[in-house]
Design a binder for these strands. Structure first.
Lengths: 328, 328
DNA sequence: GCTAGTTCTGTAAACGCTTACAATATATAG
DNA sequence: CTATATATTGTAAGCGTTTACAGAACTAGC
């Protein structure tokens, strides 16, 4: 089943069929109707590979993320995909599993499949690998950190804002001994959150910082929390670098026989879907995946269409108060 | 950058380049080495679309699911994708959003992209839509329910086993007033779970069944649980059709001032990643997404290779005991 | 009715690869 | 060294589209 058979049935040339499908050029209404009827009757779907081959555009986009099973990502994937499908684009997903080698594989796949552009939200984005994309002029959008260039844009996430709001919230609730459980320090975005905590403390005249290192996973959060609980003067409140860390910390606190928020206030980051299902529901910082995806998609589209200079895209983060914080 | 330039650089014909890439026919080691060197130097990646066009195989697989943000699916996606990437296949994901219209769109996309096969795990699999695939002889695997045929296989999930184990577990703990919160009844797999509950009760001589209807989401679980709590004689244990339902029920129980498992024992289904993070950790039934994905992939591959008659694929489910159940 | 302009349609050459088939090189036997 | 078999390579025809370019069919003006 191909365009030739359609052409034969509609008694026109393949060119005319192509033109009615794409309405790229004027086709006489009567002819177009005939063609459409033939398409309908033959149940014809154009072959995208042939299209790609000649047009150079695959109508496929790549989306590279660290780990789809990390509850942060599915919403991002979904929003991004929704955008794409709406515009007749396909999305192929690359899972790096936090593994630079797999990241290389992902990029290779993207190139082989001739994607029209790639959106990347991983920390393993080794510049050398990304070169593979820019060298081929494949538009690239980084959601996090990354350089802006003729073929790439960067979406800045305002981590500091959320951390400052969290800090302010605790401050108003009279907390003064506020600890922070950080993420892995090789991750720029994790460093940004920690630094925001430190600068926020300083600007409020609190000299005593307590930073414990986590790994953005549950286990690391629990371990860090156990350390904090062993301190001679344990914190009255804890801010964490992400929600999984907070969930781990929450478990450690409960396990130690303490209560949240009566004994310790706890704040997460990301607002993953399960954050409001913990006991108590977690006060956390919202980072809208939908907004992130929409912005990334728009940036990518602009890049693909070569729409002049690209704005400095930025995503805000905001505190949402739930049950895990309380005044002392 | 194409195969011609590689050929020129290696001083061979394009056919030889193609042959070394695919090692489809014998190529003299020396020549092959020269070709590979040229590929390396030119950083050549073959164009998959051209390949597909001529070979008829796209090396892409479709995976259609209901909702990627439902925590059940990401692991399935990941395992499936891992399998695929390992064999040089790409996966394109279709999200139906529980919407038959979007399901139709997904199928259309799969056909247009000429996927080599499709794996489907949704309840919206309207037979008329699926015809679109079978008519084109696109191998299809159903993970749940669906018909077996020359171009399709069915993975049976043994829901009954898990439910029976749950029931037995509660029975041994002396529970006799055991309720069940079901899923949406238009979903065959939900009906199977409910029926297993009913038959399990009967075989143990318990005549009094309590079935409340949920929707496989948190809210429905909470609502159903509130109804159960209003009963003159409330159940001492509740089995739910999936974990989200259980999480909703858990919230309703706690909200009513009761405790789990002291006042009511609770069992979920699926073992989503957050099931062991609830307070108390949820006793639930494990349905291995990895196993499901691996089986589905194998079935699909067999179908694609036309490997004779297909076994009756089946996935077991088993109870895992955690903290939400207790003897009375 | 003729011409110029406009609209519509057809022809055929790509796009980058695979693969019959043909041709050439190499090995083997006599 | 020649003849034959075998291993290796090259030629060229597709795969199903899109799209310059050319040609045909209208339309309008006179």
């Amino acid at each position: 089943m191909n365009i030739k058979e359609v052409a034969k049935r509609a008694k026109v040339s393949t060119a005319t069929v192509s033109r009615t499908i794409n309405d790229s050029e004027k086709v006489k209404p009567g002819t177009a109707a005939r063609v459409r009827k033939a398409i309908e009757e033959l149940n014809f779907y154009p072959n995208t590979h042939a299209r790609t081959l000649v047009s150079g555009r695959s109508r496929m986009l790549g989306l590279i993320i660290s780990d789809i099973t990390n509850p942060f990502f599915p919403e991002l994937v979904k929003s991004f995909e929704d955008q794409a499908v709406e515009r007749g684009q396909e999305v192929i997903i690359g899972n790096t599993d936090y593994n630079p080698k797999r990241m290389a594989g992902c990029i290779r796949r993207m190139v082989e499949r001739k994607v029209d552009g790639v959106a990347i939200m991983t920390s393993e984005a080794d510049p050398a690998l990304v070169t593979e994309l820019t060298r081929r002029n494949i538009p690239t959008v980084f959601m996090d950190t990354g350089k802006t260039g003729p073929h790439s844009a960067n979406i800045r996430i305002d981590y500091a804002q959320g951390i400052h709001e969290a800090l302010q919230h605790l401050f108003v609730l009279n907390h003064r001994r506020i600890a922070f459980i950080a993420g892995p320090m090789n991750l720029e975005s994790a460093r940004m959150r920690r630094d925001a905590y430190l600068s926020g403390l300083k600007s409020r005249g609190l000299s005593e910082s307590m930073v414990e290192k986590g790994d953005h996973r549950i286990e690391g959060g629990a371990m860090a929390m156990r350390s904090l609980l062993k301190l001679p003067q344990r914190p009255t409140a804890v801010i964490t670098s992400n929600d999984l860390t907070a969930i781990g910390a929450l478990g450690a606190i409960l396990h130690a026989g303490l209560r949240v928020p009566e004994d310790i206030s706890l704040i997460g980051f990301d607002d993953i879907s399960f954050a409001h299902l913990t006991q108590p529901p977690l006060t956390t910082v919202i980072l809208s995946r939908t907004q992130l995806a929409v912005t990334a998609f728009a940036a990518l589209e602009a890049l693909i269409r070569k729409d002049g200079p690209h704005a400095d895209y930025s995503i805000p983060t905001h505190l949402v108060m739930r049950g895990s914080t309380r005044a002392i």
